[in-house]
Structures are given as structure tokens and as C-alpha cells.
Amino acid sequence: MSPGILIGTGLALLVLTVLTVAVRYIDVGEFNIYIAIGIAVVKATLVALFFMHLRWDRPFNSLFFVASIAAVVLMIVFTTMDTAQYAPDVIKGNAPEAQKTLDELAPDAPVAVKYPYGM
């Protein structure tokens, strides 16, 4: 791990930073976010492999680090899947609208929560 490798890694990171800022101004639809995150992953990998010495370190350290990232990814995937699949509202609309519908259906029912803001 000569200083040359470290400085090279640093330069690569700076170039990638400029690249990711440049890509922001090009419209490729929804791919913008994937490109941005992809470049970030490459940069993070460079930092982990060379600055953090994982390239030369014991494999278990990398394994555990990757496991922790996998746990985060798992949580993101499951919660996003859940959010995407929320059952269609029993009473259509967001919370204030639901309250309005409830008010119409059962005007005398006690109101649990008053929503201060309309939408």
C-alpha cells in the first residue's frame, strides 16, 4: 500500500465526485438516481478497499462489514416492498380525507385525532 496507491485512490475519488455532479445536470429520467448511487457505491468501495485497507485485511473484517450493509439493504428492500404494497385504503384518501369521510358516515362518532392541516 504505497503512497502512490493512496494518492491515486484520492484522485479517482475526486474525479468521480466531479462526474457525479455533472451527471446531475443531464436528464436520463429515473436513471439519474441509479447513476448517482452507483457512483457513490464505487467511491465507497474504493475508500473501503484502499483507504481502509480491506484489500489487504483479514477476510472476516470485510465479511462482517458487508453483512452490516446487507442488513441495511434487507431492511430497505422489505420496508419499501411493504410501502409499495400497502392495501388500498379502506376509506379512500389520506388521513384528513379519511377523517372527513368518517365524519360524513358517522357524524356523532367521537373524533380521535384532529388533523390540523388540510392537504
Binding site: 416492498m81 411493504d82 410501502t83 404494497q85 400497502y86 392495501a87
Partner: peptide, 18 residues
């Protein structure tokens, strides 16, 4: 143990898929 947390939320409005 990391893959089953949603079974606490069956009636909390979690989606049928999950």
C-alpha cells in the same frame, strides 16, 4: 432472526404481501 420482524405487525396495516 433478521428476517421475521414483520410478524409483529400482521394487524398493524402491513401489506398482505409482506
Amino acid at each position: 432472526s433478521f428476517l421475521v420482524w414483520g410478524h409483529h405487525m400482521f394487524t398493524s396495516g402491513q401489506s398482505p404481501l409482506m
